[in-house]
């Protein structure tokens, strides 16, 4: 593991020094913020309010918290993936600008180099996402705090799992990229597209059945749902305390993707964890396997 620590330090430094790469990774979360600030928050609020029967106390405050929870969880779900992709682009940039040659003409093994990219991407992404989570917690505190300590810990755990997922996925994709054009293309597609497929811009429940079915096969969908469940559990508890009918609460949960369905049966939180952890393990395994095959083909 000679040089692993220094390589990780180098990779992290380069990510945070490259302002272009850093800000590109924040495009999707920023789009999301703009969407919520301009109209999405009002759309959600009106939609939830219209679903509620008359006569409940402090309805508006609870709905505001619901919308805040929705924004908060969507933003973090997107961040975990897009920041990981952008941070991991260093892996491709090193190939494009020739630095990779300089790193591989040393006694350091290819596996150590690959591990350094993985760890530094995960580390940089966690820093950014935990920072974003802190900002979100401050926002929630302004609206009216409703999270328990357990919720906060679970949210941080969800972020960790999603970051591992995003890092592993981007590591596999990046193994096949070799040019600046490909970096830009993948960066743009991920930044623009992931917000849609994870249900951040619009909940998956609003999509057509076919698309819903396709998205139910993507592990990231369950990661997003875990975040939504933990970010909004407190609000749902407040709804129950306020006497909202259970059907209404369940309907809201359905509409914001807290309840996910696979082949018409509801997926519980334990299974969501299982899917996400299994996806992390499988993707890391694939990354290691492809990396070994590629390095063997060069040394032969």
């Amino acid at each position: 593991m000679t040089g692993l620590g220094n390589l990780i330090k180098r990779n992290c430094k380069l990510f945070f020094k490259d302002k272009g790469m850093f800000f590109t990774s924040l495009i999707t979360p920023l789009i999301l913020l703009v969407l919520y600030a301009t109209f999405l928050a009002n759309v959600y609020k009106d939609s939830f309010m219209s679903a509620l029967p008359e006569g409940f106390v402090d309805t508006e405050n609870i709905i505001d918290k619901t919308v805040a929870g929705q924004l908060f969880s969507s933003l973090l779900a997107v961040c975990c993936i897009t920041v990981a992709f952008c941070s991991n682009m260093l892996m491709v940039q090193d190939k494009v600008n020739g630095v990779r040659k300089d790193l591989t003409v040393t006694p350091v093994k290819g596996s150590v180099l690959a591990l350094s990219y993985y760890i530094s991407t995960a580390f940089s992404t966690l820093i950014v996402c935990f920072g974003a989570a802190a900002a979100c917690f401050i926002y929630i505190a302004n609206i009216g705090w409703y999270l328990s300590a357990e919720d906060v810990l679970l949210i941080l755990g969800d972020i960790f799992l999603l970051v591992m997922f995003g890092t592993a996925l981007s590591s596999i994709v990046n193994l096949f990229l070799t040019s600046q054009g490909q970096i830009s293309a993948v960066g743009t597609v991920v930044s623009a597209g992931y917000g849609f497929i994870c249900g951040a811009y619009m909940p998956i429940s609003q999509f057509g059945e076919g698309l819903r079915k396709v998205l139910s096969f993507l592990p990231g969908t369950y990661g997003t749902s875990l975040l939504k469940n933990h970010a909004m559990r407190g609000v749902f508890a407040e709804m129950a305390d306020a006497g909202f009918p259970e059907e209404i609460v369940e309907a809201i949960k359905d509409s914001v993707d807290c309840n996910l369905y696979f082949s018409d049966s509801r997926v519980d939180l334990g299974d969501m964890y299982l899917v996400l952890i299994a996806a992390d393990v499988v993707l890391i395994g694939i990354f290691i396997l492809i990396g070994q095959i590629k390095s063997r083909s060069v040394s032969r």
Binding site: T2, G3, G5, N6, L7, K9, R10, K13, L14, K17, D18, N97, G98, V99, K101, D102, L103, T106, P107, V108
Partner: peptide, 20 residues
């Protein structure tokens, strides 16, 4: 093949560490 965004010392320190 050096890292353009890092300074001279950082570049050489990273590379030297690869040889222990």
């Amino acid at each position: 093949a050096l890292d353009m965004a890092l300074n001279v010392r950082e570049n050489l320190e990273t590379r030297a560490a690869l040889y222990g």
